[in-house]
Design a protein around this nucleic acid. Structure first.
Lengths: 220, 220, 220, 220
DNA sequence: GATGAATGAGTATTCATTCAT
DNA sequence: TATGAATGAATACTCATTCAT
């Protein structure tokens, strides 16, 4: 019972926390709210995560650890697959990852405004890693003449905006546009659209067509 | 002195609030923080804005009122200027508006965590208006064969992600990409890049070149 | 205009104050409530009555000044009219005075007009039960010809006043009458007096004497 | 220790609250006052009673619960003891109950124990005058053999309770008894009843009848 | 592992009052 | 005579956290 119960208590705290952080934001969520929703005693949060801040960090780190793993996996085959294919696959996997971890994504990219310097550090560390992978692929693609010679940082910013749109504007998507970013169908449609952007603005004409076909197969 | 003093006190509260909301988020900012930064008495916030929520709503509404005015102004000449030009100009003006109102933009699009139903309503109202203008231009362009026949809602979502990137990822831009979205130079560069996206994915070949030239002139 | 307006402002403050003091009690009434109801500026209260306490004192004094005048007028003819007549007239005039100055009387004699509706409900529930018991006994007694055929509600009101007197007027009892309602001795004396009232006004002659004896035993 | 400590903390809050509510009134008593007097932390009040209002309700309910029990116990033997005895016993028990729960009774029945000493003085001054008049008449009547030789202070207290009943219990009168003390009709009826009390308990037989007739004329 | 009690510092808000105009 | 602006102290309440059990 001991181990199960521990895991269960800890997990239910995490679930409740993520849900409420997403719903009301970190500061507007009290430790009692979380304990209430998780149906555990308040003091358990201190027991498992030291304090509220510790709980937050746990959420951050476990989210980003997995995220970086997704990026890393994709970047591994860069030379084998070529830059264009690699980027297309990565785009797809990022969008999938965000959809699967919707609550966390939404909360983390929503309340990026970090007061404590520790959070800022965590954040920076992981985003630096993210940048590293994007840059790697883009520069490799440019070097190999697969990609146009675009401004890498600017292009990353633009791409990142697009990738986060279904998260950052999910309420807008649902309530105003009647698009539902949490459903697989829409993620695939949206991935297609991002790949169209890449093909139209980044890929050199020759590779363009070939890669598109490849990816279409991959998606289906 | 009376009028001046009132305006001054009220304004300094607003400035402090926006700065701190942006820095730490709404819930992490106490009314004492704001009063302290604005160097006014705490009770003045209640005097001018009824309460913290009222202050927030004032920020929201005054921001969005101006934003909608920008959209409206641009949409006015739709038939005269044509859809492509109109959209390019609007993109440019939106990015400019966001840069000028950086703190507010950043706060509002960062912490979209709408706990109160009133906030939600305000938000929805304005975003609905925004969608109206985008839709108007896109559908007009498609009808006039200026634009490709894209999926309007999906395209808006993608565009919105791109437009908000310099705001939503400003910390990332500065600290990781070394791109500074608050400087005019970068805004113009970024606007160019967004227009390249539009030309490559939306504008029909024939109109494409003509409009691009027009806009280049406009930017310089 | 000056004088009229002054009188009018002052009077409307007084009216509003009395109404609200009566409704919510002195401490629960804010100076802004009063100013709001009177439709004058808050600072006027300070102007006319120095402060909130001054306003209260003004209410007290003007009420009691008139009250004493009523008493005085009645006592004047004591020797001429005789004590009994004098007392009867005074009773009548006091009741009339209280009715005319109902708000002030009510406030000064401290009826807790319960602001929250929940309190009100609690109160009503229990008082209804209380009434039920009184009514039960009285009606039974009347039916059994133990009691005179009095008006039940009126009689309950009178009885209730008498029963609460040691509480409602305990300060008065102690400081003015030198009677100490918290001591058992006085409670018993007072109980005797109430029973004398019942015997004289309620019990039918036959039962009267018997019951009195019974109760005397019970008390000792 | 756990149980004891809980009960002790909770009880000391209750005692302090009752004392202070009685002393200064509910709204004039702050939660800090209570916590201070009870020598517990302010937050404990929230812990045990949710909030100030909850504390008030707890006081109310526990008071009335016991009160109703007293009434119930007495009414049980109605048929066995007969109405008169039953009523006499009930009167005695109510007075005892109120004396035992003096603070609560006093607070609930809304004696405004005036906090500021100035108010107290004003109050005393006028009530002294009132007493003077009552005493004057009563003593004169006794001396002239118009009145029975009653205890003057006790009689004044009883009379005062009766006189204030329509004020002190006006809500009760209206909502429970359906008697409306603000209407002239009821005032006159009530005055009659008070005069009947005077005649039955104060006036000497001889004067009794004569005075009653006189007063009847006076009233009509 | 888990809990109820308790705490002190913090929150937003409201208050009576003052003052220059 | 009347007002809007401003203030500092006080309000009820909530918070994250600690600790004995």
């Amino acid at each position: 019972m001991g181990v199960n119960r521990q895991t269960q208590t800890k997990q239910s705290i995490l679930d409740a926390a993520l849900y409420l952080f997403h719903l009301k934001g970190f500061h507007a969520t009290s430790i009692r709210d979380i304990a209430g929703k998780a149906q555990v005693n308040t003091a358990n949060i201190a027991y498992y995560f030291k304090n509220k801040q510790g709980l937050l960090e746990y959420c951050f780190i476990s989210y980003f650890e997995e995220y970086v793993r997704v990026l890393d996996k994709n970047a591994a085959d860069l030379e084998e697959k070529g830059a264009a294919d690699c980027l297309l696959d990565m785009v797809y996997d990022i969008l999938s990852f965000q959809r699967k971890n919707f609550l966390a994504s939404s909360f983390i990219y929503g309340e990026v405004l970090l007061d404590s310097s520790l959070n800022r550090e965590i954040f920076s560390t992981y985003l630096m890693k993210e940048k590293y992978f994007f840059q790697l692929i883009l520069e490799y693609g440019i070097e190999q003449n697969e990609f146009e010679n675009i401004s890498v940082p600017m292009y990353i910013l633009q791409l990142k905006g697009m990738l986060n749109a279904p998260i950052a504007h999910s309420q807008y998507a649902r309530e105003v546009l009647h698009v539902f970013p949490q459903e697989t169908y829409y993620t695939e449609k949206y991935a297609e659209q991002v790949s169209r952007f890449l093909q139209a603005t980044l890929f050199c004409p020759f590779n363009h067509e070939k890669k598109q076909d490849n990816h279409q197969l991959l998606l289906l």
